[in-house]
Design a protein around this nucleic acid. Structure first.
Lengths: 197, 197
DNA sequence: ACCTTTGCACTGACTGGTCAGTCTAAAAAC
DNA sequence: GTTTTTAGACTGACCAGTCAGTGCAAAGGT
């Protein structure tokens, strides 16, 4: 392969990510053991350490992977859209993403506002990247006059991001029987002031 | 009554609560050791076990204590207010509470949506109590016609609760320099559809 | 006044278990 | 023949929970 990694190895890494994300979402990083992750992924413990330097590095790469996907979907969602629709599209993209990667979203919600953890710096950085995509859109909306000029872009963007997370995860955890359309509806209602839909 | 002994013991329990809430907010329940809690509270490890059955029970009593306070403030905030103003008052009370007990709010945000933890059932119950206060208010608003009749009370109430948490904690963690008035403003803007302020 | 007892609150060394990370030799996959 | 994975024993650190013992203040006895 061009990057020197075989497909097989990539598969193993993927399975480890999936096992880790589920367990960490349920129990948290500290309560999840490497033996658990290996067992759920169906590989030997040594394989975890063949593929990742440490438990912490595995988690950091997992964060990078997951937020990278989210950021990419944000970018795709707003491409070429006028500001009004772009904000609504961001909300939809976030919900769609959370529905697909529910465990990752849950994990993110739980670990996002921690302080004093080794990987905290990494997470802070990645969060900044995702929010920057939102901020670009909001900024464009303010510039074009579609959004109120007095809107604080930084606060609005991070609030938008956080609100989507919390409402969607709350839905997945506490009211999974509700159809996603209702949640989308509720969320768009909540952010109407920014979205102006 | 308030004999010297039990007052002393109550002080110790209070100090343990304060130490535990800070450490767990920063690091999470599993990553926080009983030795850490004892050290920060300035007592010996044995004292923790003299006052609480186990680490888990300490945490559960902490949750009960913290959410009990929040629920009480919610009730006090809406007492005698008409529905329109009551919802806004709830948001203000939540923000005020989070500002005062920032560590507890952070802890709540991080542990609220976990599954598969021993104390999960306790937390779910307590969350229900706090949200019920909000739901009563929203329900009254729907009944009186001040809030839209098609509003889903359960979803709206838990969304209201979660949104306040996430926006306020995000503010405390990532933009502590911003004045609280801005955050209150932003939050009221976000929930305007429900609050109708 | 002066011991003596009682029991509460607390102490900190200790125990038994758990877990991240290591290592090896051999097999499987490519 | 090189890379990747296996199985699992092992180590050392760490940690929840225990327990015999200390200090002390109030009660009771003399």
């Amino acid at each position: 392969m061009t990057d020197g990694r075989s497909r097989r190895r990539e598969d193993t890494r993927q399975r480890l990510f999936e096992a880790a994300v589920e367990l960490i979402a349920e129990q948290g990083f500290s309560a999840t053991t490497v033996d658990d992750i290996a067992a759920r992924a169906g590989v030997a413990k040594g394989t975890v350490y063949y593929n990742f330097e440490s438990k912490t590095v595995l988690f950091e790469e997992l964060l990078r992977h997951g937020i990278g996907l989210l950021t990419a979907e944000f970018r795709a969602a707003v491409a070429g859209l006028p500001p009004r629709e772009a904000v609504a599209a961001l909300v939809r993209a976030e919900l769609e993403y959370i529905r697909r990667y529910r465990a990752f979203a849950q994990l993110l919600l739980s670990e996002m506002w921690r302080t004093n953890r080794e990987w905290q710096q990494t997470l802070r950085l990645l969060r900044g990247e995702a929010i920057e995509v939102i901020a670009e859109t909001v900024r464009a909306g303010v510039r074009s006059g579609d959004l109120p000029a007095d809107l604080d872009v930084r606060t609005a963007s991070s609030a938008l991001f956080g609100v989507g997370l919390v409402v969607a995860v709350d839905w997945l955890v506490f009211q999974p029987e509700r159809p996603i359309e209702d949640v989308q509806e509720a969320l768009l209602g909540i952010v109407r002031r920014v979205a102006q839909t």
